[in-house]
């Protein structure tokens, strides 16, 4: 693993306001393989924080502060060049592509043995042989695992998680937490998790910021 791959994500006095009212201020550094959890009730602006970092902030919000990945100023880059991986509540597998197509969609363009990478990724999460399946025929847990592998194959340098487990049922939730956090830690990715579930924070095992 190269050094740049593990560059820390630094949030420098990031503050977000809606109609002049300040929602939150965060100042934190997330180092390689670490998960920072931001907790707060709905409306506290935690998802807006992710949108700001990833480059999708709605116009109605105003935000200030720096977002750095190592030496790179992320705010000066368009969303697709920030190398930020996103996981939402829903797996959001593209319905017009197969499972394999979804994984390939995430792969950088000029890569050798794409097929092999896809096969390996599926094997890694116990879905060997699922390449040509229609995502709609997969169970919720299987879809989440494909979404996770799609994210990892895209070689992100940092990952943002937006309540990724909240729609799974209890048994599956524990399993996915273990899978997601172990994979992200193994890849050495600095990760920001927003959630309102304390168990997510416990499973993440990193520092916690409480909002609201």
């Amino acid at each position: 693993m190269t050094a740049s791959f593990c560059a820390p994500l630094r949030l420098e006095q990031v503050s977000i306001a809606l109609a002049g009212r300040e929602l939150l201020v965060v100042d934190a550094t997330i180092s390689s393989g670490e998960v920072l959890t931001v907790m707060g009730p709905s409306g506290s602006g935690k998802s807006t924080l992710l949108a700001y970092i990833a480059g999708f902030l709605d116009r109605e919000f105003t935000a200030s502060g720096g977002v750095w990945l190592g030496e790179r100023n992320l705010l000066s880059l368009p969303a697709e060049q920030r190398n930020i991986g996103l996981l939402f509540q829903d797996p959001l597998l593209f319905p017009h592509l197969s499972v394999g197509g979804n994984l390939r969609f995430g792969l950088p363009r000029h890569q050798k043995d794409k097929r092999q990478q896809v096969t390996q990724a599926l094997e890694q999460v116990g879905l060997a042989g699922f390449e040509s399946r229609d995502p709609a025929t997969l169970s919720g847990g299987q879809q989440s695992r494909v979404a996770l592998m799609r994210l990892l194959l895209s070689k992100p340098r940092t990952v943002l998680l937006d309540e990724p487990f909240s729609k799974l049922d209890t048994a599956l939730r524990q399993e996915m937490r273990t899978l997601v956090f172990s994979q992200l830690r193994e890849a050495g990715l600095p990760t920001l998790l927003v959630t309102h579930d304390h168990e997510d924070a416990n499973a993440a095992g990193g520092p916690v910021i409480e909002l609201g």
Partner: peptide, 28 residues
């Protein structure tokens, strides 16, 4: 759902290519 395009772009796909590869197929 705007998240489709966010996912696409977080996977390194540019705006115009997300339009062709995600939005148009979904809206076929």
């Amino acid at each position: 759902d705007p998240r489709w395009l966010k996912v696409a772009r977080s996977l390194g796909v540019s705006r115009s290519s997300a339009f062709w590869r995600v939005r148009l197929p979904l809206l076929l």
